[in-house]
Design a protein around this nucleic acid. Structure first.
Lengths: 219, 219
DNA sequence: GTCTATATTGTGATAGAC
DNA sequence: GTCTATCACAATATAGAC
């Protein structure tokens, strides 16, 4: 029952066609970048004809938007869930580091794709939050920052932490988590690490990075 | 004497044509990304006809490569020069932070462009070093890492620093420097900062970041 | 070297049969 | 819903006059 043009499909032929197209589109857009992606390649990867992409998504633009929406809706909530939880600062740091390293290890191009989209379609940065929370970005992040800020403040009064604005806390931590993936080709070549060695470096980083980061905060 | 098709040119009409094309190409490739850039837009920005781009550079591919080569040749040497210098660790950190923040502030898309190129043309990562130093990447970075490692080790014996591999030192510092630019649209929206506020944040970071980073290393 | 005009292909999108 | 065939135009690249 396998149709001949599904020979090159990598998507599961049993799932819903629209979803299969979306999955294929995600893979191709992320791998090639939005501008570099070709409808033909997406169709092939989905195991369908190019015309079907237009039947379901009307245009490349809309398909790209659907892909970004899907990706954004998955990542951000998890991150802010961790940062806004009741866990201790130490647990938040460890949780976020592990979360990022595991997620990005599975998808080498993902970080670059998101950064590129945000630069070339800044309006989607907003979308990203409303998609995730149905709320204004500021009203979404504010309570989380307030909570984090409160935790920091309490520890500062305790004398166990030095003061830092919660925004700086978040930016520094997220930078340290994501950039080793975004700049992976650079670091691998610069330090002469093959794929296996870099994976080991990242795995070790789940312990090393929290230690480094928390030490920076220590009073 | 201004020719009519130079009306839209932003490049200096007095400089050498080949150089003017290269400058225009750099601007457009960095702004739009390599796949999103159009030869027509480059020609217009250079104030010449599209045919001239091919006369000088043969194809879009070669032009893109020339642009990357030019950019790579400018950035890396400076970075490794600072890291490999005789300055103290504290001065290296402060120097690198200021260097990055100043350079990337002037060109919002630059970090994303380089990261994207490295992902989509991994072979250029190598090029980037050979271009900068005429040497094998490993043989270029190794002495710098050795020197940095020696400095760290001496300070560890002194009891003023905790041990850290020089590679981790570099990766963490560079991550903290570049990522706030690579993810600028995200952070601006998340924290509700307009352009002016983000510039102030980056300016303040020239002091804040060295303090944060050095504290992380303190024994 | 620089231009205009044009060839050639690539690529998103549509028409219409089944 | 899915396909084949094709359109329309965008984009890279070349030919040839000046």
């Amino acid at each position: 029952m396998i149709k001949p043009n599904r020979r090159t499909a990598t998507a599961d032929p049993d799932t819903d066609t629209e979803q299969r197209i979306l999955d294929a589109a995600r893979a191709v857009f992320v791998r090639r970048g939005t501008a570099g992606a070709r409808m033909q390649e997406i169709a092939q990867e989905a195991g369908v004809n190019q015309a079907l992409l237009h039947y379901y998504f009307r245009s490349k633009d809309r398909l790209a938007e659907a892909v970004f929406r899907q990706i954004a809706g998955r990542i951000l909530p998890t991150v802010f869930e961790v940062l806004g939880s009741d866990a201790t600062i130490e647990d938040k740091v460890r949780g976020l580091v592990t979360l990022y390293i595991d997620a990005l290890s599975a998808s080498p191009f993902l970080s670059g794709y998101i950064l590129s989209e945000l630069h070339h379609h800044p309006e989607r940065a907003r979308q990203l939050f409303t998609q995730a929370a149905g709320a204004d970005p500021a009203h979404f992040a504010a309570p989380i920052l307030r909570k984090l800020g409160g935790q920091i403040e309490a520890r500062v009064r305790e004398g166990t932490l030095r003061p830092i604005a919660p925004e700086r806390f978040a930016i520094n931590l997220i930078s340290l988590c994501i950039f080793p993936f975004a700049a992976r080709p650079l670091f691998q070549v610069a330090f002469g690490l093959d794929d296996a060695a870099y994976v080991r470096f990242l795995e070790r980083r789940k312990r090393d990075l929290p230690e480094f980061f928390l030490n920076a905060l220590r009073a």
